[in-house]
Computed example of a mutant assay.
Amino acid sequence: MRAVIAEDSVLLRVGLVKVLEMAGFEVVAEAGDAEALLAAVEEHRPGIAVCDVRMPPGFTDEGVRAALAIRAQWPDTAVLLLSQYVEERYAADLLTGDTRGVGYLLKQRVADVEEFVDVLRRVAAGGTALDPQVVSQLLLRRHSDPLDRLTPREREVLELMAGGRSNAGIAERLVVSESAVAKHINSILAKLDLPKAEGDHRRVLAVLRFLGV
């Protein structure tokens, strides 16, 4: 079966290619962003597309939106989304409607090659696969405080945001890159259910929620 891979991390993308080829898939195209992913699917019409949830340029939900577009335009192409963190809103978006040939998996599962290949084949064959942690969070977070969804690092970033620090200031304090900070902030905004909307400053809204205002 032919496959397309979309992942902005070159190292992970190379690893995915090798795993898929070992499993008998033919990787016909690789992409580093959502636009290239859609172009590759349109050109090759693969049996499955494996893509990251967050990709350039915004590192928010580009992969999810691309996956939804693939499901709408090329329903014969199965989609397996990979995510660094549990983001149940994105899983819910993907599972709305026809769930055949749909998967949502945490990236850490790729390390267990046998399990990952099993999921790949199941999704490619038209099945559905959800990471166990995603299922647990979907059930638990229905009644939880959105702030409880944040990882310890995300809470640390949000606390520094509340202290008035810029992305550069947060990066300096935590000794990480600004792009890492941006990814954390995007994850925070998603987990706090703060969708993009004109007239609202999501960063300020996140801080206000953190402060209980």
Score class of each variant (00 low, 15 high):
5 I>G: 00
6 A>V: 11
8 D>V: 08
14 V>F: 03
15 G>V: 04
24 G>W: 03
24 G>A: 04
24 G>Q: 05
24 G>D: 05
24 G>P: 04
26 E>V: 07
26 E>I: 02
27 V>P: 01
28 V>G: 01
31 A>T: 04
31 A>W: 00
31 A>N: 09
33 D>T: 07
33 D>G: 01
33 D>W: 03
34 A>N: 02
34 A>I: 06
37 L>I: 06
37 L>S: 03
37 L>C: 05
38 L>T: 08
38 L>R: 04
38 L>C: 07
43 E>S: 14
48 I>W: 00
50 V>Y: 03
51 C>R: 01
53 V>A: 13
58 G>I: 06
59 F>Q: 10
62 E>Y: 06
64 V>A: 07
65 R>T: 11
68 L>I: 05
72 A>L: 11
72 A>W: 13
73 Q>E: 15
78 A>L: 13
83 S>E: 07
84 Q>L: 07
84 Q>I: 09
85 Y>L: 06
85 Y>M: 08
86 V>W: 03
86 V>R: 03
90 Y>W: 15
93 D>F: 11
94 L>R: 02
95 L>I: 10
103 G>W: 00
107 K>R: 13
108 Q>E: 14
110 V>L: 12
114 E>I: 02
118 D>L: 10
119 V>C: 06
122 R>Q: 08
125 A>I: 10
128 T>V: 14
131 D>G: 05
133 Q>L: 15
136 S>H: 10
138 L>F: 07
138 L>N: 08
140 L>C: 05
143 H>N: 13
144 S>T: 15
144 S>F: 03
146 P>M: 08
146 P>D: 05
146 P>K: 07
147 L>V: 12
148 D>I: 03
151 T>K: 08
151 T>A: 13
163 G>R: 13
167 N>K: 11
167 N>I: 15
167 N>Q: 14
168 A>S: 14
170 I>R: 00
173 R>C: 03
174 L>F: 12
175 V>L: 07
178 E>Y: 00
179 S>Q: 12
180 A>E: 10
187 S>V: 02
188 I>V: 12
195 P>I: 12
197 A>R: 15
198 E>P: 02
201 H>C: 08
208 L>M: 09
209 R>P: 01
209 R>T: 07
212 G>E: 11
212 G>C: 14
